[in-house]
Computed example of a mutant assay.
Amino acid sequence: MSDAAVSHSSDLSMVVATLGRTGELDRLFRSLEAQTAPGFEVLVVDQNDDDRLVGLIAEWSGRLPLRHLRTPGERGLSRARNRGWPEARGAVLLFPDDDCWYPDTFVADALALMATHGSDVLAGRAAKPTGESINGRYEAAACRSTRRNVWTTGIEWVMLFRREVLEVVGGYSEDVGVGAATPWQASEGIDIVLRADATGFRCWFDPALAGHHEEVVPAAPDARARRKARAYGRGMGHVLRKFGYGPATKLNWVARPGVGAALSLLSGRSAKAAYRIQVAIGRLEGITGRLLD
């Protein structure tokens, strides 16, 4: 598809799907207020059934180019994003998590890197404010994101898309992602990048682009964390199955947390072992399309 560069003057729309959070959303807004590059808008897709965001939105409306789209009764991250991006005005779309935040130069860096790579899709990584990567494995150098390496070239809330990409591939798959009415509760970003790559769009990953988030894996995972790990594992396994990955690739992604669980047990970390076992089981369930419970 098009290799035309994205300039700093391009309009950027951030579509933020949110449910149940306020303090985290305020933190995101503070990070957006601090951006060194202007020229973006923020569209909040509010799935809350109550008015918890009314005061927060009113407070920030004079400080950010903010719009509020209420969709009470609707659920699902991918569904909310699909409600939001057609309403957005920007030529480039970003979909922040409601509990992430960004460094001050994120917008400027993202648009500059899109221009450098001539990309239709640009992905980065999750990192601590000190720079260390978290919540995934990432390639060490900038590279084209393809079917072969898509699992290590990005994370959902650090992915920018030209509007044309979303129009051509039809947006997010609403049966994948957090809150979907299916067991497949993750990997919606991988799903859309795989479709974009298959369609011929130029997808790039650059580790120089990073956003911030709390670490997903706690030091001592509890039952809630284990349930979440299994649900996320199911999403990954489903996408592996949906896009016809071979047996070796599927086995690798199931075996990795399985081996990790064994190593955790040997080192006396039973809680971490239980967490990793749930990741492995979830991926297996997604790959087979059958739930074990």
Rank of each mutant, 00 (worst) to 15 (best):
13 S>P: 02
29 F>K: 01
219 A>Q: 12
258 G>L: 13
79 R>G: 14
1 M>Q: 07
138 Y>R: 05
193 V>M: 14
102 Y>K: 04
183 P>Q: 12
239 V>E: 03
144 R>H: 14
39 G>I: 05
5 A>F: 07
250 K>M: 14
51 D>I: 02
122 L>D: 00
140 A>H: 09
86 P>R: 03
255 A>G: 09
48 N>E: 07
174 E>L: 09
137 R>A: 12
15 V>N: 08
129 P>W: 09
10 S>W: 15
291 L>F: 07
150 V>A: 02
268 G>P: 05
224 R>N: 11
254 V>S: 02
110 A>M: 09
156 E>H: 10
32 L>F: 04
257 P>M: 06
281 I>G: 01
248 A>F: 11
284 L>N: 08
174 E>N: 11
137 R>S: 11
57 I>E: 06
101 W>H: 13
67 R>Q: 15
114 M>S: 13
11 D>S: 12
91 A>T: 12
216 V>T: 13
185 Q>H: 15
247 P>D: 14
243 F>E: 03
185 Q>M: 14
103 P>C: 08
98 D>A: 08
201 F>M: 08
215 E>A: 13
2 S>W: 08
6 V>N: 03
25 L>T: 09
250 K>D: 08
268 G>K: 09
216 V>R: 09
157 W>I: 00
210 A>I: 00
287 I>L: 12
36 T>L: 14
129 P>T: 11
49 D>E: 15
65 P>Y: 06
70 R>L: 01
250 K>L: 14
162 R>S: 01
122 L>I: 02
154 G>E: 01
89 R>F: 04
206 D>T: 08
61 S>L: 06
128 K>H: 14
178 V>L: 11
21 R>W: 09
127 A>D: 12
97 D>R: 02
223 A>I: 13
